[in-house]
Amino acid sequence: METPKFKFDGGFIMVPWDQFEEAIEWYRENMGWRLIGTGDGPVGRKAFFKMPGTGQANLKSFESELDHFTSKEYSEGNCRFCFRTANLDWTLEYFDNLGIECTSPRKMPDQTRSADIIAFGNVRLTLSEDRKLEGKFPESRVIQYAAKPLWLGVSDLEASINWYGRILGWEQSKKNFQDRGFALMRETWDSVWLEKVNVERSPKKANPGARLYFRIKKQEDLHKTNEWLKEQGIEASDIVGDRWKGFHFYDPDGNRLNVWSYY
């Protein structure tokens, strides 16, 4: 088959099964998100929030019997799922006052600023500042997905540019950030940061709590994509779910990439 079309489509923030109700309240209150529904199904518990800008945020319970949703060998690794905030300093001050761990702001190659917070259940979320949104959603700390929703650390920048181009069909941006240790890759509409980091030769595979997903529209194509990745020698999990289906696979540095399809 041709290189599959991987389109960014949101994701899951994972939480412990026995703390699910507590997690719903934490995200509703501290993010400023509106709960629009919950559900239980073959792949566990879910909660759905409308973010104040655009998009939907989803909580998902860990499920120990499903490899795709297990909390076993939990590791954030170098995968960052990024969200947008209007004023990063104000947002970090809010979380710091609650005793929530935050990192210092970091200037990105495009001159925006980003920082991590350790959210409910020790999940790392990355916040990207967009001052154009300032004042529009005064009751919300986290407004929508970032313009560059995925940020991945890689050991070899050039090799990763080639891998993501070959496997996911992404193109490198015309703006060259490699002198700053970054590359900007583009899928259909959204962008992905690749950053050169020090990664062990045999990296531990990431099993993070904040998991960005790419959508394959047709479930028939989801199965074909899973098979195609395995034919390329890429480690991919088995597909789980029924009406909703999903799986994950890894890049050469152990970064976890997630795929889903639904009717």
Rank of each mutant, 00 (worst) to 15 (best):
T103P: 00
D89I: 05
C102H: 04
V142R: 00
F69G: 01
R124S: 07
Y94W: 05
R80A: 09
P52V: 13
K132Q: 14
G39C: 06
I36L: 05
I117D: 02
G53T: 09
S104G: 02
N58D: 12
K60A: 11
A57L: 03
D130S: 05
S128K: 02
N78G: 07
L35G: 06
I100G: 01
A115T: 07
P109F: 11
T103E: 10
N122D: 15
W33R: 00
G37W: 14
R113N: 10
I117A: 03
F62K: 04
I100S: 02
R34Y: 09
K132I: 11
R34P: 00
D116R: 07
V123S: 02
S61N: 11
F83E: 04
E101L: 07
F69Y: 15
P109N: 09
A147V: 09
F137L: 01
R34F: 07
F81H: 07
M108A: 08
D110R: 00
G121I: 08
T38A: 05
K136D: 04
T54N: 06
R141G: 02
T38I: 13
I117W: 04
Y94Q: 02
D89H: 03
I117S: 02
L59P: 02
E63Q: 15
V43D: 11
K46S: 12
N30S: 05
G44K: 08
K60G: 05
G41D: 12
N87G: 01
A147L: 12
T91P: 00
S64D: 15
K72P: 00
K72D: 13
I118Y: 13
G39W: 11
N30P: 02
P138I: 15
N87H: 10
Y27A: 02
M51D: 06
S114T: 13
N58E: 15
W33Y: 06
N122A: 11
P42I: 15
T126Q: 08
N97F: 05
G53R: 03
M31V: 08
W33L: 01
F95T: 04
R28N: 04
V43W: 11
G55K: 11
E93M: 06
L152R: 03
G121Q: 06
I143W: 01
E101D: 05
D96L: 00
F95Q: 03
G37M: 12
Y145M: 08
A23M: 01
W26K: 01
V43M: 13
P138G: 07
L66V: 10
L35M: 13
F137V: 03
E25D: 08
P42S: 15
S64R: 11
E29S: 08
H68R: 06
K72M: 08
G135M: 07
Y27S: 00
L35I: 15
T70D: 06
I36F: 04
G39R: 08
G135Y: 09
N30R: 14
T70L: 06
F83Y: 11
T112Q: 13
R45S: 13
P52L: 10
T112I: 07
T103F: 06
A47Y: 08
R106K: 14
N87E: 12
E22G: 04
M31W: 11
F81V: 05
